[in-house]
Design a protein around this nucleic acid. Structure first.
Lengths: 189, 189
DNA sequence: CTAATCTTCCTAAGAGGCTTAGGCAAATAC
DNA sequence: GTATTTGCCTAAGCCTCTTAGGAAGATTAG
């Protein structure tokens, strides 16, 4: 029988596209097999199981997101860097909702450590350099920024901001202004 | 055959408990039927389908969460109210991770409007009263607060803060300090 | 009280999804 | 050119969701 040229990489990329098309939760071994024109069982030569497949998509998304954010913040500092980071983050999530959902998947500790998750934290720290926060305040600020970015994007994606006419883009900009202000006036304990 | 006394309410409550026990994504018609000692098909007299069941859990969680938050902020204002709100919100999410995941489920517009989602936005607005923000800044602040609360709880639940020794509770308190500061010094456009 | 009418639960059955076992053929190694 | 590895297949089992149709308990009307 002629071979279809399936590889783990191609499966992962196709799964990522599928996720963006129809939602991460609808990424299924069966759907992927159909897309490649092979039987479901054949995929198990390349991936361990369905969870493994999803994890691969998550790692792909984390790496892509880290790349885009890194490119966006390069050569910027302070509020400039903050805005660039936030814009790249939110832009990726909007362009790739399925991949973004994958990136937010719960990874086991080992996988998470080996992933680009570390790069994300490092880049957030880099942004904070200009605000000159000592530890542990810097870590607290990293957590706060991550929370706002992820929270805003999640709520926006879930449609939580649709019930009010205020422009979502404008709220986002003002939120970044407020974050910048909070970082410049970081409270003493 | 003796009747098991299944009702939509009892199913919903049991599903909520199941969600907290084993995760919202593992709430399944089959598991619920087992818990009630009836056949799966029997549940379809009470719920429309699996999605309907999950929606009911989401609405239950939203209502419970709104109740707890309302009780916590009653009689408080300013930073006091902010801390109480945030504490109630995060406390509920930690005590009821499955219900909380349900509350974050994507609801169709109609369901969302009929749900306690509105109460949440209203209470957030109530907290902001003491900070005296004009519109549309108030809406922007509502969105920012919602993002931080949801984002922090989501990342914490997903284990994203486990890779650093800094106490998660302490970061949370400092984040609230920073939010209070951001609200008091809300930037002019 | 009885009969008609829900309502709840059942059996049966089909559609998908996930996964393993075992086999044949294509590609690669020696 | 043979031997081994790799990629894909068939077959089969398990789980979940859902619908259809039927029987027995519960409720209501007369």
């Amino acid at each position: 029988m002629a071979r279809a040229g399936v590889t783990a990489e191609r499966l992962t990329r196709a799964a990522a596209e599928l996720a963006d098309d129809v939602g991460f939760d609808k990424v299924t071994v069966a759907a992927l097999a159909r897309r490649f024109g092979v039987k479901e069982a054949s995929l198990y030569s390349h991936i361990k199981n369905a969870h493994d497949l999803k994890t691969r998509v998550a790692l792909l998304a984390l790496a892509e997101l880290a790349d885009e954010v890194a490119a966006a913040v390069a050569g910027r500092a302070g509020k400039d860097a903050l805005v660039a980071f936030a814009g790249a983050y939110r832009g990726y999530a909007k362009r790739h909702p399925g991949r973004y959902a994958a990136a937010r998947m719960e990874l086991d500790l080992e996988t998470a450590l080996a992933s680009a998750g570390r790069r994300h934290a490092d880049m957030t720290r880099a942004i904070l350099r200009a605000y000159d926060l000592p530890e542990p305040d810097q870590t607290d600020a990293v957590r706060m920024l991550g929370s706002v970015f992820h929270g805003y994007v999640s709520l926006e994606t879930a449609g939580a901001f649709q019930h009010h006419p205020r422009d979502v883009e404008a709220s986002w900009e003002r939120t970044l202004d407020a974050l910048d202000s909070a970082l410049r006036n970081w409270p003493k304990p």
